[in-house]
């Protein structure tokens, strides 16, 4: 039996955290950003995936991305 004095006090007091039951209990729900091959592999294994066709601005070219930033409001 715990005593009240055994519990942490103040900000350090530990509260009971909710367990992410649904993440572990149900099938995964996946959103994939960027490389389509990741989504393709999951799809092959029967996992539903929402793929977002995203890439870094200017394909990651730092000079162009910098100019784009300055040419936008």
């Amino acid at each position: 039996m715990n005593k009240a004095s055994d519990q942490p006090k103040g900000d350090a007091q530990i509260k009971e955290k909710p367990v992410p039951q649904s993440l572990l209990n149900g099938p995964p729900q996946v959103i994939n950003l960027g490389l389509a091959s990741f989504a393709d592999e999951l799809t092959k294994q029967g996992t539903a995936v929402v793929h977002v066709d995203w890439s870094p601005p200017a394909r990651g070219d730092v000079e162009l991305a910098n100019l784009l930033s300055k040419l936008s409001e």
Binding site: A58, D61, L64, L67, L68, K70, L71
Partner: peptide, 14 residues
């Protein structure tokens, strides 16, 4: 388009 973007930036002093 990349060449044009750089030229526009230069034209606008960016």
């Amino acid at each position: 388009f990349e060449l044009a973007l750089k030229a526009l930036a230069t034209r606008l002093g960016v």
